[in-house]
Nucleic acid binder design. Structure first.
Lengths: 146, 146
DNA sequence: GTCAGTGCAAACCCTTTGCAGAAAG
DNA sequence: CTTTCTGCAAAGGGTTTGCACTGAC
């Protein structure tokens, strides 16, 4: 009988601690979702997270995937990337950086913040404080078959 | 009897010609929508366009509003601004410029391109060409009651 | 034992679509 | 007259919600 639950933090450094340090109670489902998000440097739509998570035997419901991603985003564990009106992407990389978005393929790629400099920000509207800066370079064209 | 149709181009310089020059046949509904878009320097969601257009006596259906805004965007008459997963904004200003987005109020404001400089673009992914650059500065805070 | 988290299905809401009638040239 | 556009209502699709059950501590 090997249908036991694998130790949550074996192949990935302390995912549970990562959640706790962001004020998130590490439940089984949240750990599964976090492991998907942080196992690769990739961007995921909620649907892709759901698919990846549910490749294993233990399943997580759609509601929980959405709720969890929203929770992670609110608590700064992941970053929401809004580039496509039809779905939100979640980026496990919360460092300052920017994005390429291929409007033909739907592919989203990181741009290191050092590769693109922005001048100082203009004066913000009265009564507001900065909450983040998003730079999206939209590109077109199929990536080579490779 | 004064329920005649006002000359389409009276208070706004040649809206019809503007449509034609973008390859768009100027129908009555398209003119009404274009007049709303270009009468003020504002950003509109589809719903706001619909409301504004239908303040007058002549009504335009929801389907036509959506279809028309999509058409205008495809033909470069307006710019789609993707900042909020729940709705698309349409910007009558197609010049190079950027945006503030107030995540508390949903307000969208222009940033003149001269107010924010970007370094040269990083190398694009292989096989792709640039299709546009969006810079969004997200801010937080109610604007003063004023 | 208590409170927070989860799952299911239904509800939501913006947007798109199919198709018959109306308008443009 | 022919083709394109418009309107209505229904369908679509990602996301959220209500509520009973489960799990965490």
């Amino acid at each position: 009988m090997d249908n036991h639950i694998e130790p949550a933090t074996t192949h990935n450094p302390d995912v549970a601690g990562m959640l706790r340090s962001h004020g998130i109670l590490p439940t089984q489902q949240r750990l599964m979702i976090a492991r998907v998000l942080f196992s690769k440097h990739q961007h995921y739509s909620a649907d892709q997270v759901m698919t990846s998570v549910n490749e294993g035997r233990d399943r997580v419901s759609k509601a929980t995937v959405y709720n969890t991603l929203g929770l992670f985003a609110r608590n700064g564990l992941v970053r929401e990337v809004i580039v496509d009106p039809t779905r939100v992407f979640y980026d496990p990389n919360t460092d300052n950086h920017h994005h390429f978005y291929n409007v033909d393929t739907g592919e989203l790629m990181d741009i290191d913040s050092s590769a693109l400099q922005i001048s100082e920000l203009p004066e913000l509207p009265e009564g507001t404080v900065a909450a983040g800066v998003d730079v999206i370079i939209r590109v077109r064209g199929e990536s080579p078959a490779s």
